[in-house]
């Protein structure tokens, strides 16, 4: 398995592309990533996958710094990706920043690009 971790910032559009308390989806090599905008214009990105049963978090209702999954109502913290108690589970989060009105997201290429062939073949 490739051991060098590379990361890069990707621009995914304007802050104003996303309605407040809304989300948009981007994909990275097939992996959907949900990018959320809160009422106070904070932006968060996490895998668009509820740790419960894989529901699309991007389609949920956003409130404060949380989103409620549309499938079974789990509430996920946007900053940590963790489910709120008593549910347990976590969705992977990505660093994001807003520069001159543009949203940028940092992705470490490795984990997604390189298929884990060594493990498969041994």
């Amino acid at each position: 398995m490739n051991s060098t971790l590379k990361s890069a910032w990707y621009t995914i559009g304007q802050l104003t592309d996303i309605p407040r308390l809304g989300a948009k989806v981007v994909t990275f090599h097939g992996q959907p990533i949900a990018v959320f905008r809160t009422q106070t214009d904070d932006v968060f990105a996490l895998n668009d996958l509820c740790p419960h049963k894989g529901g699309p978090l991007s389609q949920g209702i956003v409130h404060d710094h949380k989103v409620t999954c549309p499938l079974h109502g789990w509430v996920i913290e946007l900053d940590s990706g963790s489910a709120t108690a008593p549910d347990e589970g976590c969705s992977h989060t990505y660093p994001v920043r807003v520069t001159a009105g543009k949203i940028e997201i940092e992705i470490q290429n490795m984990a997604v690009i390189e298929p884990n062939t060594e493990t498969l073949s041994t």
Binding site: L21, T40, I61, H63, D64
Partner: peptide
């Protein structure tokens, strides 16, 4: 709460 929740807002 600042924004309500998925129960009250709808």
């Amino acid at each position: 709460t600042a924004d309500g929740c998925a129960k009250c807002r709808p």
